[in-house]
């Protein structure tokens, strides 16, 4: 059974028929990558600015693209944009909406990039935010452990090895052990954030761009 959708508007040039419904079901990622809409729009706006700055797309089109993307952002946040599985993913859903808003100039946004570049960028931006959120959460937890440590700095308790009493410690000392552990976890998130804080835009799958683009 083939789906009723005509061949894909974004890449369907060489296709005579649309995808099977099951093909669409296994292929589409919009059900979950819609979560990346904010990062997708942010990265596209930056990409459009680059295309303008490099003289690849003229400034009128760049402005229309960047403004249109902001409109889409508000539409999504207001729950007004219906995502379509036929458009596969967040990138194509945004681009299709942009075309409806500003016309053929929307097609210039995808100059010099692939969806693989987009998703790599979106995901890095998202993970970077999550690393920040994790650090904030860990530090809040550290403060809670620290409050316990301060209250019971001199309250003796058993220290254990093998869950058998070993030597006396204090409640504060024990709580501080967790403060140190979680501090190392926050450090790991900072390290990971620094390592992935690079922009993957513009390899266009695996090559750079032609010199005279």
């Amino acid at each position: 059974m083939t789906s009723d959708t005509a061949s894909n508007a974004m890449w369907g040039g060489r296709f005579a028929a649309g995808p099977d419904a099951i093909m669409e079901a296994i292929n589409a990622s919009i059900a979950f990558d819609r979560l990346l809409y904010r990062q997708d729009i942010e990265a596209s706006r930056a990409h459009a600015a680059m295309l303008g700055a490099q003289g690849i797309v003229e400034s009128g089109d760049v402005e229309a693209i960047r403004e249109g993307l902001l409109t889409i952002l508000s539409e999504i946040e207001a729950g007004e944009l219906a995502f379509s599985p036929a458009l596969e993913d967040i990138h194509m859903n945004v681009e299709a909406r942009l075309r409806a808003l500003i016309g053929p100039a929307a097609g210039r946004l995808h100059t010099a990039r692939s969806r693989n570049d987009q998703v790599a960028t979106d995901f890095r931006l998202w993970v970077r935010e999550q690393a920040d959120a994790a650090i904030t959460g860990i530090e809040a937890l550290m403060r809670a452990a620290l409050a316990q440590a301060e209250a019971g700095a001199d309250w003796p308790m058993p220290g254990f090895t093998h869950l058998q009493v070993a030597q006396p410690v204090t409640w504060g000392h024990h709580m501080l052990a967790y403060v140190e552990m979680f501090a190392r976890d926050a450090g790991r998130f900072r390290d990971a954030r620094a390592r992935m804080n690079e922009c993957p835009l513009a390899p266009r799958i695996s090559r750079a761009l032609p010199k005279s683009w």
Binding site: A140, A145, A147, M157, P168
Partner: peptide
């Protein structure tokens, strides 16, 4: 994130029983 928030809440709210801790610290030839 959920686990971090829940643990923070648990730690903030919990009461350490000082007397029990002290009695237990002395046990077991510590």
């Amino acid at each position: 994130m959920l686990a971090l928030a829940a643990m923070e809440g648990m730690l903030r709210d919990l009461t350490a029983n000082r007397a029990v801790l002290a009695a237990s610290a002395a046990a077991g030839f510590s």
